[in-house]
């Protein structure tokens, strides 16, 4: 009963029974679905149409990204625990879980920055005796390169830095735009969570009665997580596994 009052006590009755701000957040997330949907659609339309490398298969490291994905998913769990603690008025537990959520969000962002840097400095090492059919576009172009290629140097193995940047090819443009905007969403979420964390030390700003404030942040956070699950599957996994790539 007490929790039911906490849910509805501070706001006037609405036609649907759903709080105005919560409905606003749901409608906004619906709009954001179309936003990410369009970015993912652009990525998929251009999938396999880049004229030069590097391609997903060259740069993605599924183990690394799996770790960051796991961290982000766990942050959703700690978000739930933070919300639950706040409703039970356990402020210390609440702060611990809220801070963990923000830290996990930042960890994810750090992984993303790391990953972007690795992609931008991508290096290709080509075995000059490998059958041509087994080489990717970018390996082929390095092998035939007029200055560092196999014929030019006469080595058994040649290497060259072929970075992936947003300007490199269609894959780079669509990939960095999509994941970059997701990263921007996570950044916004982290700022939001940290703001609530620091506000919770001010009396009366974050209270069990005002749990809706956290509820909205949590809704947003979970949404951003779900979008990442789709990106991880469609971009990363489908990008490297045979049959999809």
């Amino acid at each position: 009963m007490a929790q039911a009052t906490a849910d509805h006590g501070e706001h006037e009755a609405t036609t649907t029974g759903l709080n105005h701000r919560k409905m606003l957040m749901w409608a906004f997330l619906g709009s954001d679905c179309m936003f990410f949907g369009s970015l993912i659609a652009t990525y998929l339309v251009y999938k396999g149409r880049s004229l030069e490398g590097p391609l997903p298969i060259d740069v993605f490291s599924i183990p690394t990204t799996s770790v960051s994905t796991f961290v982000l998913l766990m942050s959703s769990m700690s978000m739930v625990l933070a919300y639950s603690a706040l409703r039970r008025n356990r402020m210390k537990t609440f702060r611990v879980w809220l801070a963990s959520t923000a830290i996990m969000g930042m960890t994810f962002l750090a992984f993303q920055v790391f990953e972007f840097r690795v992609f931008a400095n991508h290096e290709v090492v080509v075995d000059c005796h490998a059958p041509i059919g087994e080489l990717s576009i970018v390996e082929l172009s390095v092998r035939n390169d007029k200055t560092v290629g196999c014929e030019a140097t006469g080595h058994d193995e040649v290497e060259k830095q072929v970075g992936l940047t947003p300007k490199t090819n269609l894959f780079g443009s669509t990939f960095f735009t999509l994941t970059g905007f997701h990263g921007a969403h996570v950044t916004l979420g982290v700022i939001w969570l940290l703001t609530m964390f620091f506000l919770s030390f001010k009396k009366g700003m974050v209270t069990p009665e005002r749990n809706l404030d956290l509820d909205l942040a949590a809704l947003y956070w979970h949404f951003v997580d779900i979008v990442w699950i789709i990106i991880f599957t469609v971009v990363y996994l489908f990008g490297v596994f045979p049959g999809f790539a």
């Binding site: 251009y46 149409r49 269609l170 443009s173």
Partner: peptide, 18 residues
Amino acid sequence: LFWRFFDMPFFSAEFGGD
């Protein structure tokens, strides 16, 4: 915007874009 500002080849046919 990215196409114009940062030369990201979204609509450039010479990069395979459409």
